[in-house]
């Protein structure tokens, strides 16, 4: 890692039952992936209040990811379906505010998809890296 290379600051909001466990799985399987994502553990992707995402971007996060159980697999029956609607509206709105497409991402990662988690992080980190630093508003 060169000293000059831009290291984006990425926040990941993960549901406890699927994606957080999937990220654990990546760990138990010793998969390596970029270290930029900091995970905030939540019970459900449906717990993600868009206000928190606004706040993260306002505070200068370079990227924000929300990851939950695959549709149909929610531990709380329907939580991710509501999350999907809400965040599907947030994404174009953020873009409309000038926050480039790719800085916000909604993903579905199951508890068994450690591999997918590592790939999702690698891809997302790459994307955010290519978009460059954002800074605080």
């Amino acid at each position: 890692m060169s000293v000059e290379e831009f290291q984006p600051r990425i926040i990941g909001f993960l549901c406890n039952w699927c994606s957080y466990a999937g990220a654990d799985m990546a760990g138990t399987s010793r998969m390596t992936y970029p270290s930029n994502v900091r995970i905030i553990r939540l019970p459900c992707s449906g717990r993600v209040n868009p206000m928190i995402i606004f706040k993260a971007f306002q505070q200068g996060a370079d990227g924000v990811m929300v990851s939950g159980c695959h549709p149909g697999d929610c531990h709380y029956v329907d939580g991710n379906y509501y999350a999907r609607r809400r965040l599907a509206m947030l994404e174009p709105f953020l873009e409309y505010l000038g926050i480039e497409k790719g800085r916000f991402q909604l993903e579905w990662v199951s508890a068994s998809e450690g591999k997918k988690w590592s790939q999702v992080v690698a891809r997302f980190t790459d994307t955010v890296k290519s978009l460059g630093p954002r800074g605080k508003i």
């Binding site: 717990r47 868009p50 505070q59």
Partner: peptide, 28 residues
């Protein structure tokens, strides 16, 4: 304790113990 109500409410009336807005914001 899924917290769907917390995320949905505009007037921030519900809070989820252990995962309050203030706590999540403090992490951010």
């Amino acid at each position: 304790g899924c917290g769907l109500c917390v995320a949905a409410c505009r007037s921030t009336a519900p809070s989820l113990k252990g995962y309050t807005d203030a706590q999540i914001l403090s992490e951010v």
